[in-house]
């Protein structure tokens, strides 16, 4: 039976190996923070971290994920919303409808791990998540704020 390491816990899941990770997270593991947006890895609403790398889970069959790989979902980003990206998102009121924001936050958190002080140009290039409400300006501002404040708290 496939086993996955999700948010620090090893979970056994009784599913077909072709099942996309997104389905397993939401249905078998009841971690519904990660969203289905397009199903073709274009929108980013399904973004999780696999070994720290932002990965779109909608098209990724779990046969392609090893037990040793650490999957982190939005629920696991912090125990209490205290990740600098989450705090900046709150401070600047970034989400509108909120649907894309789990994926957006995961993408932003990973960007800041790679590049602690990204410019607007880098943010535009690296964050390819789609937001129908158009919160992009606030997303950029919040990423800058999270970069400023960093992990100093």
């Amino acid at each position: 039976m496939p086993r996955l390491n999700v948010n620090g816990q090893v979970r056994e899941v009784d599913v077909d190996p072709d099942t996309p990770l997104l389905w397993v997270l939401r249905e078998q593991l009841a971690l519904t923070g990660t969203k289905f947006g397009c199903g073709i890895a274009m929108c980013g609403a399904c973004t999780v971290h696999i070994d720290g790398v932002p990965t779109r889970s909608c098209g990724l069959p779990i046969s392609a994920v090893e037990e040793a790989q650490k999957i982190v979902t939005i629920e696991g980003l912090s125990p209490d919303g205290s990740h600098p990206v989450q705090k900046a998102w709150l401070a600047l009121d970034v989400p509108q409808c909120g649907y894309c924001q789990s994926g957006m936050i995961m993408a932003a958190a990973s960007l800041l791990e790679q590049n602690p002080k990204p410019t607007d140009e880098i943010i535009n290039q690296e964050i390819t998540n789609i937001c129908r409400c158009g919160t992009y300006n606030k997303v950029r501002a919040a990423i800058h704020m999270a970069a400023e404040r960093g992990n100093a708290g």
């Binding site: 890895a41 274009m42 696999i50 070994d51 932002p54 990965t55 990724l60 392609a64 994920v65 390819t128």
Partner: peptide, 18 residues
């Protein structure tokens, strides 16, 4: 590439991901 492929691939030698 960054938008569609970089989720699973890099162009850095030796850097394998999904």
């Amino acid at each position: 590439f960054k938008a569609r492929c970089a989720t699973c691939h890099t162009t850095v030698e030796g850097q394998n991901r999904v």
